[in-house]
């Protein structure tokens, strides 16, 4: 089975509000997929469902053939769009925490990446800037030899130089046999590293195609195609 992720008829409601509606997706190993859509399209909700943070209202998610559970959490590396560090904690404490809980965590790689950024591993998080904390979080996520990486808005709200660093870190550190799903609305920035894209709109999958397919069939970049598809939403 080459698909690391299978989603069938997935629906998520928050009270009476329908956030995801009948999602059907398959993600192959070794592919980098962009989960694209405007704010409120349901990108974060979908990632939260896949990593087991929240429960589906109906439908099914299978990761390596398993429903989300502690077993799938052992093979899924999730980067939330929120900072989860405690200010009084040292960087090395969190590195040790990851090494303790995740068998696939490569501590040496994490420390090496941190040192390449001149981050003192004995520094407390409260002494690091917001950007540095985000990079530490990314390094921890990418230092796992996971089967599926879920990156929620990894380049949102950072300067262009930081974006380059983040994308470089993702590209040079992910397990090549794994799948990567990157949620973002900054398509132009990530287009070059993507193999496939998923367009989400109002909680439904609008399309799931390869980047090359879009360029060949539509004769335009993913960014231009995205603007064409979503453009009428704002007018």
């Amino acid at each position: 089975m080459n698909n690391i992720l299978e989603i069938r008829g997935l629906t998520k409601n928050f009270g009476s509000k329908n956030v995801l509606n009948d999602i059907n997706l398959s993600i192959e190993r070794g592919r980098i997929t962009g989960l694209l859509g405007p704010n409120g399209a349901g990108k974060t909700t979908l990632l939260k469902l896949i990593c087991g943070l929240i429960k589906e209202s109906s439908g099914e998610i299978l990761i390596d053939g398993l429903h989300p559970s502690e077993k799938t959490k052992a093979i899924v590396s999730f980067l939330p769009d929120k900072d989860y560090f405690s200010g009084s904690e040292r960087v090395i404490d969190t590195v040790d925490f990851f090494a303790d809980f995740y068998k696939d965590f490569n501590k040496g790689k994490a420390i090496s990446l941190l040192q390449s950024l001149n981050i003192d591993i004995n520094a407390k998080f409260k002494t690091l800037s917001k950007g540095m904390r985000e990079r530490v979080q990314l390094i921890l996520t990418m230092s796992r030899e996971a089967a599926l990486y879920l990156l929620d808005e990894p380049i949102g709200g950072v300067d262009p130089a930081a974006r380059d660093y983040i994308l470089h870190t993702i590209m040079t550190n992910y397990n090549p046999n794994a799948a990567v799903i990157i949620s973002t609305h900054l398509i132009n920035e990530v287009e070059n590293i993507l193999d496939d894209v998923i367009f989400l709109k109002h909680g439904s999958v609008l399309l799931h195609k390869s980047v090359d397919g879009i360029r060949e069939n539509e004769g335009k970049s993913v960014d231009a195609y995205f603007r064409e598809v979503y453009g009428n939403m704002y007018f």
């Binding site: 943070l53 502690e70 959490k73 052992a74 899924v76």
Partner: peptide
Amino acid sequence: YLTHTLPV
């Protein structure tokens, strides 16, 4: 986000 994504 960290606590509930641990394999526990």
